[in-house]
Write a protein that binds this DNA or RNA. Structure first.
Length: 233
DNA sequence: GCGACAG
DNA sequence: ATCTTGTCGC
């Protein structure tokens, strides 16, 4: 089943770092940081894993009911890995597969949570922001570690958060989703403000450090949802 | 030139 | 991200 949506294709990676940066600059101007979220009824989480020593990129997309956080559908797309991991250029390596997995969902989500940075990126275009401008869907970046930016000390309680700054700009927040666990780095991807991004992430954190959308997609992408016995097949 | 560096 | 066993703690 497919949602019949068509997005612009990811430009092929030609090995030219300069061209990739030029494209990022152009796309960065399209990122919108004002809240533009109609009623959010469907959420989606996307993440990427690798198979066969890295030669196969495996993207997972999970659709959830925003009210109950129960998964409604999940899809996986497997494609040959086309380029290596380069800090700052993650979207060029992972988005081709992510877009395919997303297109397989029975319907489009109203908000997508992505494993990685939104605008908290050297050029203001992390994978979540890049996905947002390509699909024009609201997106939020949920990263486990910082790529760029600085912040003040963070409180110890669930829900505590401090702004993340970079070159004089507020680009996101460092959020403690559970007590006594390392905080998450939240940043707007597209059509969402920092405050709204933090709100939705907390809304999706029930009993784990990661919000449900990203947590479920992570399990599927890294095949942690099956036993080692099943993984051999 | 010397570090830093999402996943 | 991925390769990998046990182990400490709620």
């Amino acid at each position: 089943m497919s949602n019949a949506f068509r997005w612009p294709a990811m430009p092929p990676w030609d090995g030219d770092t300069a061209s990739a940066r030029a494209l990022q600059l152009a796309l960065a101007r399209e990122v919108r940081l004002q809240d533009e979220l109609p009623d959010v009824h469907y959420l989606a989480g996307v993440d990427v894993g690798f198979e066969a020593g890295g030669s196969i990129t495996r993207a997972a997309a999970v659709l959830l009911d925003a009210a109950t956080l129960q998964p409604l559908a999940q899809e996986v797309a497997r494609v040959p890995t086309a380029m290596p991991y380069i800090p700052g250029l993650l979207s060029f390596r992972e988005l081709p597969a992510v877009l395919q997995a997303l297109a397989l969902l029975p319907r489009l989500p109203d908000l997508i949570m992505v494993d990685g940075q939104g605008i908290a990126h050297p050029r203001g275009l992390g994978i979540a922001a890049h996905l947002g401008v390509m699909t024009d869907l609201p997106t939020i970046g949920v990263a486990k570690t910082i790529l760029v930016g600085e912040h003040e000390a963070l409180g110890p309680s669930r829900g505590d958060h401090v702004p993340l700054h970079y070159k004089g700009r507020e680009i996101g927040a460092v959020l403690r989703t559970r007590e006594r666990v390392k905080p998450l780095i939240i940043s707007p991807g597209h059509r969402v403000s920092v405050d709204t991004a933090v709100h939705w992430v907390m809304q999706c954190c029930t009993r784990y450090r990661l919000p449900e959308p990203t947590r479920l997609a992570d399990r599927l992408a890294s095949r942690r949802d099956m036993s080692s016995e099943e993984r051999r097949r």
